[in-house]
Design a protein around this nucleic acid. Sequence first.
DNA 1: TGAGCCCTGTGATTTCTGTCACCCCGGGAG
DNA 2: CTCCCGGGGTGACAGAAATCACAGGGCTCA
Lengths: 205, 205
Amino acid sequence: MNWKERFPQFEPGLIELIEKEAVQRSFNAGDVIMRTGQYIKSTALVLEGRVKIYRESQDGGEFLMYYLLPGQACAVSMICAIQTHTSEVMAVAEEDSEVLMIPVHLMDDMMNQYKTWYQFVIQTYRNRFDELLSVVDNIAFRNMDERLEFYLKRYAEKTGKKSMDISHQQIADDLNSSREVISRLLKKMEQRNLVKLHRNMIELI
Amino acid sequence: MNWKERFPQFEPGLIELIEKEAVQRSFNAGDVIMRTGQYIKSTALVLEGRVKIYRESQDGGEFLMYYLLPGQACAVSMICAIQTHTSEVMAVAEEDSEVLMIPVHLMDDMMNQYKTWYQFVIQTYRNRFDELLSVVDNIAFRNMDERLEFYLKRYAEKTGKKSMDISHQQIADDLNSSREVISRLLKKMEQRNLVKLHRNMIELI
DNA sequence: TGAGCCCTGTGATTTCTGTCACCCCGGGAG
DNA sequence: CTCCCGGGGTGACAGAAATCACAGGGCTCA
């Protein structure tokens, strides 16, 4: 699929520029696209697949913030890009993914010259900010059982599937919890007839 | 103090427009500037004082996100403004404050016509996003004792004072915790010689 | 076929936090 | 001055979650 179809709103001049300067890269499921502390050289637009953005703590903990789907971009990479910062988050391909990498040194001009670009950037900030807000809500106000339900619901939404191929351990990592806790809570959900548990797979009901 | 001195970066045309269309309002300490669920009619720029932005849960819990100081603006009000949404956060004056209210229907044109304005908006998004990230870090990875230390440090930074006039109950509210827990943790901090406790006042060391 | 690994279930224990109960103290209102 | 109220200290307890320990089952690979 041609990348332009993912971003039909972009104006011709912008498309030309991207065509000339950006690089399209493929990642396999599990590949790290951007690492915490890494110097950012490009802004990433997702074309295909699914990218997971999460935060890392000093002592090895992880915490999932949100997913990027085709047509979306990483707000953090834009933020850091403009300031020539290092990344504050990890980006990992959760499925095989196609990503368009736009060199950061172009950002300033693109913002100035292409209205459709800065609209896209603003839109991106807004969406990520909103998602971050709901994430804050969850960890600030909710117990693990409710957070788990939210997690599963969101996962199903993003993948569009009712059955998710994921282990309890992975969920625990994403929620910065532990496997046993997740297992127990899932068991309870199964008893409430909300899910059906299988090996490496959870079915939503 | 004239509001223009708070925003020296704004270009002449923008200043004129704001002069003509915006309204300056005064709030006393404790006044609610924006309520959760309220329809947003203006974007707020802080001129004087200190404004607290926090999230509310359905069941009465609060959770402090960050402070706005003079020269800063509420990213959330911009987000909602552009989409003509309702507010997702509370904004309360923590000190007597002066706020410039810019009607939301102007936002689109301002973004298009005034470069200094959209730079300001982008900057605002970036800063708030960054703050939100560090907030997420704290609640996701840290225990209450570390969150408390972070809270006190930030409070001292924002006010520029080493002694803060605040009750344990207020801190507990901001952290969505309870008074007893905060009291105990503060006691421990006092034993570690990090603070000195007084009635309605905490001294940082 | 057997070894090793990962996934899952489950009990026991511990730590952290929230909640309840009750205390004292200081300061302002009457 | 006394009363009352909000601020703060503290113990006891409850519940959530993390941690430890261990067992069984399935899958892969030699």
